[in-house]
Design a protein around this nucleic acid. Structure first.
Lengths: 327, 327
DNA sequence: CTCACTCATCGTAGCGCTACGATTTTTATT
DNA sequence: AATAAAAATCGTAGCGCTACGATGAGTGAG
């Protein structure tokens, strides 16, 4: 910066000002400064800037895993919008472990970030106290309906289960199963199950619950399905905790020669790209992946400019039931 | 830090030393300092530390997209290994745009990172000069065989095409097609095509090339396949640029009643989880997703300790052809 | 042509930490 | 007990920038 200033024949302060608020510098000097910057290949030191101004352009985002098209689509959108506003994302993944989340929060907070985005409402006590003690804006995403720390952008997972169950009840299915990734890993799947079961049982139907042990994996899914159908041959519809599980179920049905939806109806969650093309096309629920990212950026930016009314801090983006031929 | 020092009755220097190299502080003070830290909930300021030591614990990683299980698996592994060594990942995605990559490099370099990980060998002139002018360790990943900037960890995409072609030639297929995501978006798919075509044509076979327009998407894939087969009904094998495309092809075959592999054989790339469970199970090529992450971490850490011999800077991790019933 | 006023530029004092040499304390040796 | 050597602790001077009040240049009115 010193060097740039010398070459442009101005003081370092002016260079700094030019970098931060270019229109407050006369165009004559602005040009000289820009020329000097280009010539020297000068890159400002973000850390020094952050230290001096005691705020940073960092926004931390913590997701369970980035190997999952759900969160990664949100991340990508969020990144695009926040980068456009001059922010840098610091991404951490908890691998579905609350303690890792706590570590990550600690680690990210040491950057004194401008904001923090977490997935869901489940955090350790320590995490909560860390977050409430600092006054960093926090967004909890991908869920809705519980007490949030600050801002919330998501949707209700119970509603998803409810929508699918209502659809299945309407279609006349009563002997159903809920085939799920492990609840311990994916707490929100448990909410979807709750929603599904409440409606199904209220309508006089039954729900058999089966959880996968490891990461959801189409092979294990096939095995679980065979066991389930051997034990409960009357099952006529299966609600899967996500599209990947549903895909595994569809493959197994094809392998066993069980026709979909006549022998058994199937529904997933996620509305992943391939669901439109399975044979038959898959009924699923479309979560607002990108919208979540977009709205988080919006709320966060408004909050950082201090004009976010309390009334708009919680956002339920809803979901859309996509009915196709598999049910 | 000041406060911690006062509470623990030592100087700030000692607190700093304790934080950086705890075993150089007597256990008596170490305990007092830790107690003070806990009591005050002290979190060190990473920016101040980075500024003062003029090096940071940041490692930048730039991938085309994180919405892709290829890169995200590598990212996850890389993150785990580097975090264990005290580094923080700064992730950027280029959305397959070289200019965005340049911007990202600039933005990440302003953090003066300890290292930088890029995807592939294609960069703008400016990017190259930025990278060569600084002495930041650079890793180029997910490719191999071209001239790298510094370290390289990946595998040859031509080899992948070659392996699939050799397998298909061996099985007697000669009227083939290569169905691909857009080469502009995915430059490495073009290498796979080259490898495939070289071998297939050398064996007297033919290759029809078809590129998808947008993001790979199973619906568009189906359309493209129908057109292709209408135009070239003699086609007996299709090599797809990745598993998702191959899945779209398999669905369309099922819909059309074309038996796999009798009417047409199919191969993909990626060895994604679902490939083992499709009907029939899909022939594909397994890339060393996690290994790439692991080895990048290893090379980078060795390099940062200055003991990476030049001979070990380039790493071809190879791939594995996974032959299943679809071909 | 002067004066008050506005806008552009500059100088200085930190931001919170680390590096490093100076100083003090502890330990080992005779 | 005295001394050297080693280990632990401390004080000071920045790291590269920004914030902010001080200074200088430019502008229009009288």
């Amino acid at each position: 910066m010193e060097e740039v200033a010398q070459l442009a024949d101005v003081s370092p302060s002016t260079v700094s000002l030019y970098l931060r608020r270019p229109d407050e510098v006369s165009s004559r000097r602005a040009e000289k400064i820009q020329a000097a910057i280009d010539r020297l290949g000068y890159l400002p030191n973000t850390m020094a800037g952050g230290l001096a101004s005691s705020r940073s352009n960092v926004i931390g985002v913590i997701v369970p895993t980035i190997t999952n098209s759900f969160f990664s689509a949100t991340l990508e959108t969020l990144e695009r919008h926040l980068r456009a506003a001059g922010y840098q994302l610091l991404i951490g993944n908890t691998e579905f472990d609350e303690l890792r989340e706590e570590e990550l929060i600690r680690s990210i907070m040491s950057w004194n970030p401008a904001g923090l985005v977490l997935t869901g409402f489940q955090h350790t006590r320590k995490s909560l106290s860390l977050l409430t003690q600092s006054d960093i804006p926090v967004v909890e995403m991908w869920d809705y309906g519980k007490q949030g720390l600050d801002m919330v952008v998501g949707f209700s997972h119970q509603t998803i289960g409810r929508l699918v169950a209502e659809h299945m009840v309407h279609k006349g299915y009563r002997h159903t199963a809920f085939l799920s990734t492990n609840f311990q890993r994916d707490v929100r799947a448990a909410d979807r199950y709750q929603g599904f079961r409440n409606v199904m049982e209220a309508a006089g139907g039954q729900v058999q619950l089966r959880e996968l042990v490891g990461r959801s994996n189409t092979e294990e899914t096939g095995q679980l399905l065979r066991d389930l159908m051997a034990e409960r041959p009357d099952i006529d519809a299966i609600c899967c905790s996500n599209d990947m599980v549903a895909l595994g179920v569809m493959f197994e049905c094809q392998r066993q020669g069980w026709s979909i939806p006549d022998r058994v109806a199937i529904a997933g969650f996620g509305n992943q790209d391939f669901t439109a093309s399975t044979v038959p096309p898959m009924t699923t629920v479309d979560p607002p992946r990108e919208e979540i990212g977009r709205h988080i950026a919006r709320l966060l930016l408004a909050r950082l400019k201090n004009d976010l009314p309390d009334a708009e801090k919680q956002l339920d983006l809803g979901v859309r039931l996509v009915i196709r031929e598999s049910s």
